[in-house]
Design a protein around this nucleic acid. Sequence first.
DNA 1: AAGTGGCGCAACCGCCCCGCC
DNA 2: GGGCGGGGCGGTTGCGCCACT
Length: 300
Amino acid sequence: MGRAPCCDKANVKKGPWSAEEDTKLKSYIEQHGTGGNWIALPQKIGLKRCGKSCRLRWLNYLRPNIKHGGFSEEEDRIICSLYLSIGSRWSIIAAQLPGRTDNDIKNYWNTRLKKKLFGKQRKDHHQQQQQATRRGNALRHHGTVNKSNSAIPYWPQQQQFPVAPSYYNNMLSSDHINPIENLSKFGAQFMEQSVYNNNNANGYGNGYYFPLLQGQSSSQMVDLENYDMGFDDPRRVLCGFEFLYGDHHNQIMGTSNSHGYEMGPLISSCPSNYEAMLQDLSTTTQEYDTHLKIMDSNAV
DNA sequence: AAGTGGCGCAACCGCCCCGCC
DNA sequence: GGGCGGGGCGGTTGCGCCACT
């Protein structure tokens, strides 16, 4: 047996709120507060709405100092880093962004930011133009940007490497977070070790994964024997995603010892089919190098 | 002009948490 | 301690708008 509904579903109005309903709800709460009981609130005001609906309307739209749309780069960055840390706990993320609601951030993530970060399959130029036009129109329609911004290009395409296998999770004591998977989602690049060194003479076999360092293209070889940069080496960055390592830094990046550099355990093992996944990638190394150059030129 | 598909957003649904009795 | 019920939350859906065919 399910629990009783919070209101009489047959006698409540659903769908978009009218201006009159908004006014009623807003003026009442501003004068009397919620009274600590949302369920009873609509009856007091004379609204044929579910209490939960009233709460949602107030929190997401009517309460003061709410911002809609127009997310800044800084807000993007905060959302991304928090999402990586805590996942889809939108209320907590929203608490870090004054004026933003969890619903707004959730929508923003699902409709735009996710695409920006995950990238999409490469589409032909025509399709990208189409999407840019449509998005610009949509933004104009909702009044979030002015016309001068309507021609902003579609989200840049992000090179996608397959995510690390889930059994890495077992190697983490704290929680379910899989750093490689998450870093990959956010654009961090990992290269299969055999790309750099095929002879395995140093004890590293195929199927080991290196973070692709900033400014480094997949065509550049890395000499494992001399791959001994310290933790403070400025080259040791993952295209700007190093701030996302958190507690898993050593597990990803490994440690230095008297023999030189050792990859972290999360990089130094993988299932045999991972290589096959890599081979299935349609994007070639050349395309990726081009992508890097574009990123570099955009960064200037 | 009509149909179609993509997109973004508001709102709903249903589950879980937690305080109260 | 256990049940109840309101609040809170994340996932999902519905709808309007627009461009394109």
